[in-house]
């Protein structure tokens, strides 16, 4: 099951301002609290945070809404957060704050066909993620085959991607985070 949360709607419901901009830390904290409540009530493994209709996103708000949410959900088993509806400038702000925290998230940026990771992800893991996304499902051997690595190296990469919640992994097998 996937829970889709329209971030702009949470903004309107939580903060009584007539703007679509996600700015200031206090606004970000209020919106994150609203998102966390929705996630807790929804009980779904995957949450799609949809940024369509959000205007400006500043660094402070990106930190409060996205980075802090990820830092909290990463401690919970089988919880995945994926971002969607991002404009390029949203993705830059989010990438900046996630780099600061040395974490990453899977995101669908407008006009891009496939999701990509924002934040800090080693080039080797980026390669592994791209290949795994393309394969859809598989195991360390199939990933190793796809990227031309040893099985051990591919297994290590899969474990790292699973810890970062960029892939679903279970007993040696992986699958893309389901988005529909």
């Amino acid at each position: 099951m996937i829970l889709t949360i329209m971030v702009e709607r949470v903004l309107r419901e939580t903060v009584q301002v007539p703007y679509r901009d996600l700015v200031t830390r206090s606004t970000g904290a209020a919106v994150r609290n609203g998102i966390e409540r929705a996630i807790a009530e929804g009980g779904c493994a995957t949450t799609l945070l949809d940024f369509s209709d959000v205007g400006l996103l500043d660094f402070s708000c990106a930190d409060e809404v996205v980075a802090k949410l990820l830092l909290r959900t990463q401690t919970e088993d089988e919880r995945y957060v994926v971002l969607s509806g991002l404009r390029e400038e949203h993705s830059e702000a989010i990438d900046h704050v996630l780099n600061h925290h040395q974490i990453a998230v899977l995101a669908k940026v407008e006009a891009e066909a496939t999701p990509r990771a924002l934040g800090r992800l080693a080039p080797e893991l980026q390669d592994a993620l791209a290949a795994a996304q393309q394969l859809g499902t598989g195991d360390a051997a199939s990933l190793a085959d796809a990227v031309g690595w040893t099985v051990e190296r591919a297994a290590d990469a899969l474990q790292s991607l699973a810890l970062l919640r960029l892939l679903c992994a279970d007993q040696g097998h992986f699958r893309r985070i389901p988005l529909s």
């Binding site: 901009d21 200031t24 830390r25 400006l56 996103l57 500043d58 660094f59 402070s60 390029e88 400038e89």
Partner: peptide
């Protein structure tokens, strides 16, 4: 056009320093 977004972000962060 991209500069406008960054400009508004810079303005937002600068103003927030007062509030924070």
């Amino acid at each position: 056009a991209k500069a406008t977004i960054g400009f508004a972000m810079a303005l937002s962060e600068a103003c927030q320093n007062i509030v924070e």
